[in-house]
Design a binder for these strands. Structure first.
Lengths: 257, 257
DNA sequence: GTCTATACATAGATAGAC
DNA sequence: GTCTATCTATGTATAGAC
């Protein structure tokens, strides 16, 4: 369910991807450690000084239970409205036990938010370099975001909905990532324009609109699920939509207009 | 700042719009009562039995202060995290005074959510009929939504972010409006397809994507504001983006491809 | 490492004076 | 119609037994 990237051994994508140019959701999933415990192990290793439990296996399993409970309750009523008693019940751990895994409720929020941010940054950065041609770059970046949000949907949803509870410092980091992923798209569009394959447009607005489409996939997943739209269909539809707008017209034949 | 529609005298749009085919943000604003108190007066009249204050002028003014305070605090930390003491301070009313305007905190939430829903439904329904040709209908519906969310941005933002706190019954109403506005777009796309002006596409996906763009305008307003994008620019960009995808190709000249 | 029982703080809500 | 003072419930967090 969760994916993770060790800070020490960033995975190498190029070597592993058969067709860099055109990957689907199944290809994407093969790239990563999709064990449901991976992200929790990462959290354990990152927060070893504050987590009181020293047995890794046990700690990771309980962190998994805790995070899942947080996502489940928060998606219904929000993190602030979730009480520690709610969490205790849903995670099958006593109140006392919970506090062995985080200092306080606010700390729990930050642990989740930080881990989510690190993961997104690691994965998306890796996908910048998977293609060379502007059109392939654009497709690659759009798809990677959608597929990642599919694999780690609870983290994406939680990060978006609970962003308001962040400190000024953390909010700044969030905005920086937002601006960064937007800039990645803008750069690709500019490259394409300079090569004559994309039209001259307001690339900032195009990038914003692309991001809003990607976001819809994890904010309104129930809607797409009820219509039985899978990640590949959605990603293809989005790229098709975008391409119809940005691709330069094929050259006109003289005399005909 | 707020706009409102009386249940008893729905405004007539067709007669008032000079150019039905192509209105801009300034035109849109002229259509409505944009007095900052209008929505609050509507709330007062709708909830007269539960509001203890009988002096309309005073009640409406205080409701305005209360709602603005709610929007301001909630946008920073969420409705659940807002305490009645926060609200009391921000609205310049004592705790005791606040409870003359609503039964309890939950009631306050419902009053805002309900009023927001009624307003959106009234306005958007009115815009279905403003044009006849599919392309003009599509433009009209897209723009109306963006312009409305601009005029009543706090209500839109609040409604979206606090939807999780609703009861099962109210959630059902929200989903119905969502499905309804989506269906309005799907119907237009189908009409256009049958008339040969729009391509054959998955209209559900197209409508979803259009809605995600519109939503971005009120969810990420700070971003657009910092880039000094105004409602007209944004609306035009969105309609241009959509049209490049849905419009049928101009007929090809025989022998040339 | 986890539990139960409890301390302490803060929230929502109201009574009664003005 | 609004205020201050206060009641009561609920929430976070911890101490200490197992």
């Amino acid at each position: 369910m969760f994916i993770v990237f060790s800070k020490h051994k960033p995975p190498i994508y190029k070597k592993e991807i058969k067709s860099v140019e055109d990957f689907d959701f199944a290809d994407f999933k093969k790239r990563f450690d999709t064990s449901k415990y991976s992200l929790c192990r990462e959290v354990f290793q990152t927060n070893q000084e504050s987590i009181k439990i020293k047995n890794e296996k046990r700690a990771v399993e309980n962190l998994y239970k805790i995070f899942n409970a947080v996502f489940s309750i928060s998606s219904k009523k929000g993190f602030q409205a979730m009480t520690m008693r709610d969490l205790s019940k849903e995670a099958n751990l006593s109140m006392g036990a919970l506090y062995a895994y985080f200092k306080n409720k606010e700390d729990l929020l930050h642990i989740i938010q930080n881990q989510g941010r690190v993961m997104v940054k690691n994965v998306l950065d890796s996908f910048e370099a998977t293609a060379v041609e502007p059109l392939q770059k654009l497709r690659s970046v759009i798809k990677a975001h959608i597929f990642l949000s599919e694999v780690a949907r609870p983290w994406f949803f939680f990060t978006f909905m609970e962003a308001r509870n962040l400190s000024e410092n953390e909010l700044k980091e969030v905005r920086e990532i937002e601006a960064h992923t937007e800039k990645v798209i803008v750069d690709i569009l500019e490259l394409g324009e300079s090569k004559g394959v994309f039209k001259k447009r307001n690339h900032f607005l195009t990038a914003s609109i692309i991001k809003s489409m990607q976001q819809d996939w994890y904010l309104k997943r129930w809607k797409y699920k009820s219509r039985q739209i899978n990640p590949d269909e959605f990603a293809d539809y989005v790229t098709g939509f975008v391409e119809s707008f940005v691709l330069a017209e094929p050259k006109k034949i003289k005399g005909v207009h």
